[in-house]
Design a protein around this nucleic acid. Structure first.
Lengths: 236, 236
DNA sequence: CCTGCGGATATTGTCATACCAATCGGAGGG
DNA sequence: CCCTCCGATTGGTATGACAATATCCGCAGG
């Protein structure tokens, strides 16, 4: 019954013309409209919240979520906690997606994309000695690259993977010399993107990710890296 | 409170020495142990179920799940449904993932994978004149290929995309000659996989998906297939 | 007229209880 | 020895009440 109600609610959202930010009817009204008890309505809403469709706020109601991928990240994160070996699969997935993203970006990036990425590279250069800030800038660069690829679906799948690997990256970025090497590689990638050289961009990204994966493996061997998930809810 | 209870339960699972298949204590006992009402316990259990940690079975209890990826698949599926993604983006995503899957499968497939795929090709050959059954067998073949690639994460993320494209495929598969052509292409792919020729497998898969996409486009032009979004590639 | 305060109202969160539904196991009869 | 049925265990649903939080509106004061 819960699943049936959740399906009805999902239909209300997708084919009911509700946009992100809109509020669903209150629980007591959904009780009448769906003809089930409040218990079932609440469980259905909780399921949709766990799936990232809506966000339930105390005293306000259930609002349609923007297409945030945090639910996918959380679910993947718990999977990682139960089976640590999926870390390798995640790294491979990231490689598959980002290599292709580089190629697509080289074919589709506009001047404004290149400008934004160049500015981001400057920021990375400035933060190169503070691992935490550097990784943040690094992640942002990859996000800009993904946006230049002009494919929301790829972004939807890549985002949670990258999020999940962020902790690993912070450790690997603090290894001596790796940040500077990564910066050079980013510059190479951007150069190829700017020239519209898709194959070159793919090749450079493949090299870059191989090096990064090597850093992560090394950090794992040294025991510096703990494979856990930091579950923190968004701070409003 | 629900999240706190869920965290406690998750700790019970991961650091409590519970293996997949083990049963958690019944709800009424967790009520006493956690000091909260049954409502909260149930909501926490539902959250863990949505995240794929446990599987709740009526009359039996909550059993610790193996690290199945079905929760990730469901979450992604709902997310994609809500975003009503553009058809060409889905096709591109499918191409990115499946081309790489073919390459990985060529490197990693064992004899039993090849056997299963060959059997699946026979089934497709038998169903070649019934579009519906053929597409089902087709999907199954691609699933076997993905399994041979030995990366569950990629498989998990590919599935929702394929699901959304299924309707398009049923239409395109009914175009004259396309099913037979697709069958030949599948045979080529399998041949390369069998020989361990990763690049060849990638190339053949790329050809196959390009042809399939062409079929879908043609069906779109003929109005056989209705889609709300139109394909616009170039940004402003 | 504007501002800030306070209460009324709406809405979700938690609790307690009762009963329904599915599953399992063991007692009893064939 | 096997089958059946019944009771016990366990999750599923319904209901009503109250608490916690957010929103809105009117009113007093400037």
């Amino acid at each position: 019954m819960r699943d049936r109600a959740a399906e009805q609610l999902l239909d209300m959202v997708v084919s009911g013309g509700l946009s992100p930010g809109d509020r669903l009817p209150p629980e007591r009204e959904l009780v009448q409209r769906l003809g089930v008890s409040r218990t079932v309505v609440r469980e259905a809403l909780n399921l949709l919240e766990a799936r990232g469709i809506v966000s339930i706020e105390h005293g306000r109601g259930a609002v349609v979520s923007d297409g945030s991928t945090s639910a996918v990240r959380d679910t993947l994160g718990m999977l990682l906690r139960m089976r640590a070996e999926v870390l390798w699969e995640l790294l491979e997935m990231r490689q598959v997606l980002e290599v292709e993203v580089s190629g697509l970006a080289a074919e589709r990036a506009g001047a404004e994309d290149v400008t934004a990425m160049r500015a981001q590279l400057d920021r990375m250069r400035a933060l190169i000695d503070t691992p935490e800030g550097y990784v943040h800038a690094d992640v942002e660069f990859h996000a800009l690259l993904a946006r230049a690829a002009r494919n929301e679906v790829i972004l939807t799948m890549l985002e949670p993977v990258v999020d999940l690997l962020r902790a690993s990256r912070e450790v690997s970025a603090s290894r001596p010399g790796s940040a500077r090497r990564a910066l050079r590689e980013h510059e190479e990638i951007l150069r190829h993107v700017e020239e519209g050289n898709a194959d070159g961009a793919r090749r450079e990204m493949r090299v870059h990710l191989a090096n990064t994966a090597e850093d992560i493996e090394a950090a794992l061997r040294e025991g510096t890296l703990e494979v856990t998930e930091n579950r923190e809810r968004e701070p409003t």
